[in-house]
Design a protein around this nucleic acid. Structure first.
Lengths: 190, 190
DNA sequence: CTCTCATTCAAGGACTCTTTTGAATACTCG
DNA sequence: CGAGTATTCAAAAGAGTCCTTGAATGAGAG
């Protein structure tokens, strides 16, 4: 008890979990899976990688215990192992945003100029939903809407938005939302 | 805005932070630094590595923004960049403990049989400190005691314990504590 | 200024990770 | 059972990581 080899092995175990997140493509997978379960081909499409490579990354995540699978017909669905994984992902993003020197520039390059958008706080949004003077649009993929969404929101995935824009009412304000601070669907939608 | 290369770069940025934690020795460094700042040679000693290799790992952590340095005379002290890093480390440990299949075995191998020890809850401990019927001993290294400790605790680093054991009073109970659930100083002390 | 010491750098060899390609599994449905 | 499809495996090239050794840096003290 308490010997060096055992301590190394234990902390290597902690490091294994970090190693699973230590790849940009796997980080994207976690970010997508935080919205709900998806199958391999969808995930490959989300991260723009081959199905084989995506499957490999998912296996890496699975063997670190971050994701689990479920079979339905002949599709295999992956989902996060628990909400704790979301907490870990959030903590990682927070630390990166706070301390990683280049992250501001990277985020700006991907997200564009956010200051040209109008933001709506959570409290304000729920007040206005209750008052009925706003239409909320969920611009995430249909699978993520199906896995859970803001009550009363309408699903219009980003790629269908141009076609369905005319169906939205003219006389009330429209609010678009997506996955979180590092998701551009809503920005594009506006 | 929103193009694939920029998204890859952004998530590679998140992965950089995970990569910094993706090594057992660096994980040990974070765990030690969570107790307070230390200089390179002390840290090398804690993780049983050469000073050069420890310095290399610390640089890796520093360039991911997880630790920062401070010079005092001709010593360089490292400390965590902020409490957010502690949150990240805690979240990582939690996920590992909950989902990593082999971690139970590794922890048992390092920690030994914890069930032979008497545990004292936080509430109970503070009540008994107030009542004065307990002596609390901090068995961490002196530097960590200096960086912060339970009010009223007495510092007896593990390596001095055998010598100073006779000085402890016979008539009240003694409670030992150290860094947290993955630290064996207190177990050894008992 | 020079000496000293803590820390960092550089080069190397062994090892691991990422991605692609093409083939192999494993399951469902007819 | 057999066809069809989603997923995983295997091999290989190229890149990156870890740790050791020995030398270099740079701040403080004399």
């Amino acid at each position: 008890m308490g010997d060096r080899a055992a301590k190394d092995a234990l902390f290597d175990g902690f490091a294994d979990v970090a190693k699973a997140l230590a790849n940009g493509r796997r980080a994207e997978l976690i970010d997508v899976l935080a919205q709900g379960e998806r199958h391999v081909e969808e995930l490959a499409d989300e991260i723009d990688q081959s199905v084989a490579n995506t499957s490999f990354h998912l296996r890496t995540l699975a063997s670190a215990g971050l994701v689990v699978t479920r079979r339905d017909k002949n599709r295999i669905y992956y989902r996060l192992a628990s909400d704790r994984v979301i907490d870990l992902w959030t903590a990682l993003r927070d630390v990166a945003a706070a301390h990683h020197a280049e992250l501001d520039a990277l985020a700006a390059a991907y997200l564009g100029r956010r200051d040209e958008l109008d933001e709506v706080s959570r409290a304000e949004l729920s007040a206005r939903i209750a008052a009925g003077d706003v239409v909320v649009v969920d611009v995430r993929p249909a699978a993520e809407y199906a896995a859970g969404h803001i009550a009363g929101a309408r699903s219009i995935p980003a790629e269908r938005l141009a076609r369905e824009l005319r169906d939205l009412p003219d006389d009330v304000e429209v609010v678009a939302y997506c996955r979180g601070p590092y998701c551009v669907f809503a920005d594009d939608a506006v």
